[in-house]
Design a binder for these strands. Structure first.
Length: 296
DNA sequence: AAATCGCTCAACCGCCCCCAC
DNA sequence: AGTGGGGGCGGTTGAGCGATT
């Protein structure tokens, strides 16, 4: 990766920034293009004094001729603490591929799982990868990743909506020509998730299928994701366990069941932990017969 | 040495959501 | 309920640079 912040040739211009990114900026001349060392210094000093956020105020208070969005982007991509500068490691590359298989083009979401990496970096890496593999006539996901994912746990949910009297049955996918795409018609009967009744506790538990609610699905042919990554979202009716997948501030529900089953997890691991723990939860409730260890 | 090509990546753009009023 | 500002996010662009011809 090329070292950042080295501006060899000034391509900046001073212009009235148009709508969109600088909608809130006053109609004055704001600079665009590469940042200079002096601008960087102003930005860093401002954040040191005032912390992150309130980016438009930065422009007003510091006199920096940059719109708030540009300041935020510069900070996030170059000066935020603990940023990694080196190229992606093989482990990181593998993780990106797996995360993309799971979440699609959710760069910011993926960045939460790659400590010290920015959404922009991941996006650039992926777009380059797409170009390269397309040119080489290779599939988007390498066979080893496809194999790894599809071998984690072959199961498929049927018979929605579920109840405790009619629990979801798990049907092994055929190892050869099965694909998540082929599973979708079955799941489309219940595109937003389901509610499970747990009579032993007198509780209802709501599940959602992020794959089915994601607008970015464009799965390659024959890509087998295995089972949808079930996420426990709500324990009805009293739940406050309502975060979206990927929400780092996932609150605990206010009744006992999920808190019993979901141990503490922290930071960037929380999303995947919540996903896997949700699957584990299904197993503990008897709806899933795949040990968590095999799924991971 | 010069021209061309292809890739990388920083930065911008536009859309959207959230929240205060 | 409607509106506007702030901020987050994904898509896109194009300058810079190394490789190749």
């Amino acid at each position: 990766m090329r070292p950042p912040t080295v501006v060899k040739k000034e391509r900046a211009s001073t212009t009235a920034v148009a709508s969109g990114g600088a909608a809130a900026a006053p109609q004055q001349l704001l600079k665009k293009g590469p940042w200079t060392a002096a601008e960087d210094a102003i930005l860093k000093e401002y954040v040191r004094k005032h912390g992150e956020g309130n980016w438009n105020a930065l422009q007003k208070k510091s006199g920096l001729q940059r719109c708030g969005k540009s300041c935020r982007l510069r900070w996030v991509n170059h000066f935020r603490p603990n940023l990694k500068k080196e190229s992606f490691s093989p482990e990181e590359e593998t993780l990106i591929i797996r995360l993309h298989a799971q979440f699609g083009n959710k760069w910011a979401h993926m960045a939460k799982h790659l400590r010290g990496r920015t959404d922009n970096e991941i996006k650039n890496y992926w777009n380059t990868r797409v170009k390269q593999r397309k040119r080489a006539g290779l599939p988007l996901y390498p066979p080893e990743i496809q194999q790894h994912i599809s071998s984690r746990c072959h199961g498929q949910v049927q018979n929605a909506p579920w109840t405790a009297n009619s629990p979801p049955t798990l049907k092994p996918l055929q190892p050869t020509n099965s694909s998540f795409t082929s599973a979708m018609p079955l799941l489309s009967e219940n595109p937003y998730g389901s509610i499970l009744q747990d009579p032993s506790r007198g509780k209802n538990i709501s599940f959602q299928f992020p794959f089915l609610t994601s607008p970015v699905l464009n799965w390659p042919e024959n890509f087998d994701l295995g089972p949808p990554p079930l996420l426990v979202k709500e324990e009805l009716p009293s739940s406050q366990f309502s975060s979206n997948y990927g929400d780092e501030q996932m609150p605990h529900c206010n009744s006992g069941l999920l808190n019993d089953l979901l141990p503490e997890s922290h930071g960037e691991e929380k999303l995947l932990s919540s996903t896997y723990l949700a699957i584990d939860l299904l197993g503990k409730l008897g709806y899933w017969d795949c040990p968590l260890g095999e799924f991971l």
